[in-house]
Design a protein around this nucleic acid. Structure first.
Lengths: 208, 208
DNA sequence: ATTTAAAATGAATTAGGATTCATATCTTGG
DNA sequence: CCAAGATATGAATCCTAATTCATTTTAAAT
């Protein structure tokens, strides 16, 4: 009798879905979550505002989905590094460095992912994101402890500290918006990596 | 002819001003900045909403003032520690420990000061707050470098990293809202202090 | 007691963007 | 081409607090 879902329609629907996500993602990368407005996203995607709501139940869900997608990629990259072979210190250094490098590459996006508060949904995702990072780092550290390269330590606290150190060190310059040179950035990355490696390898356990 | 400002009226005005700040501060400590509503503050202070606006030009300014006050105290505490005599590692350890301890004492307030985004005014204050902290820590580290206790390093980056590590490590548990025991908290504080001391004292500079 | 002006009141206004929904436009199978 | 149902549209509606302001109350000085 009438209209059935068809390969063609399904495909189109998916296209639009993707298109919306892509536009929203671009908006976040451009100005952070705060800069995303449903009407702007719709306009940029060549759709009417209402149309967004037939793909996403709410703005919050749309943003959460954007967050999830971007984040997934980041964690994958990190996970790969963690799983590569090589000594724990080298892997840890790589992981930290890659994190730093990627964040400095898209600073607004990095800020949005790491800090910018939005709403409960996204905040939950952010929490999960940070935890994922900490878990990946924690695995490397555990490996190092097992193999005797690192001294015994409270892995999860240490992993969280590293995530925080990274976040803070990277966000500071972002906010200062002093247009740092490439050379300065490299020096900063090296300082951060050193900081983290020292923290994990150190032998000051007795002091505290 | 009429109404002049008088000792009595001025005193009263100050009282109300203080009262508003106090109520607002309590609201922040209770539920973060997001939980503050002008009408609630007014009600809690026994005033009409409009009255708040004769003491503060806007909600943003009120919150910024609350932030400034709380923050000032924290930085003072930290500055005292930094200025005390004793070896750099011991002072650094104390500073980190005190920060951690105070934050765990009033977790919601700590979250609000360290993370919660509000508006431009407060965010600027937060930036200044973090920078103050980093500056204080940086001084200790510089002392340590001068006296040969710590190896040479990029003081400002390292100081930022410490602030971040502290923030992250302290906020994580807050959000998890697992009711940690006192013992666990102590262990965590120790882990954080160790982490920071290791990071600053480490000798892995060549690795990165 | 009265005048003058500050201070307080709180209901009404405002603002800005998310969300809805009646209407119009497509798609599909017959 | 038609009927039936899915989709798309975007102007109108809703929501939520901050902010305003006409009115009332209070304090000071004469």
């Amino acid at each position: 009798m009438a209209y059935r879902e068809t390969k063609k329609t399904r495909k189109h629907k998916e296209q639009v879905h993707k298109q919306i996500l892509s536009v929203a993602r671009a908006a976040v990368a451009e100005g952070g979550f705060a800069a995303v407005q449903m009407s702007s996203v719709a306009a940029a995607a060549g759709l009417a505002t209402g149309t967004l709501y037939r793909h996403f139940p709410s703005k919050a869900e749309l943003l959460a989905e954007v967050f999830r997608r971007v984040t997934k990629r980041e964690v994958q990259v990190m996970t790969e590094i963690a799983g590569s072979d090589g000594a724990a210190p080298s892997r840890l250094g790589d992981a930290v460095e890659v994190f730093a490098r990627r964040a400095l590459q898209s600073p607004v996006l990095a800020y949005a992912l790491i800090f910018e508060p939005v709403d409960t949904l996204v905040d939950d995702e952010r929490l999960a994101f940070r935890r994922s990072y900490a878990v990946v780092l924690g695995r490397i550290i555990d490996d190092g402890i097992k193999s005797g390269t690192f001294p015994a330590q409270n892995t999860s606290v240490v992993a969280n500290c590293i995530v925080g150190a990274l976040a803070e060190a990277l966000i500071g310059p972002l906010v200062d918006k002093t247009p740092t040179t490439c050379r300065e950035r490299e020096a900063e990355i090296r300082a951060i990596v050193t900081f983290c490696l020292n923290a994990v390898s150190g032998n000051q356990k007795g002091i505290a």
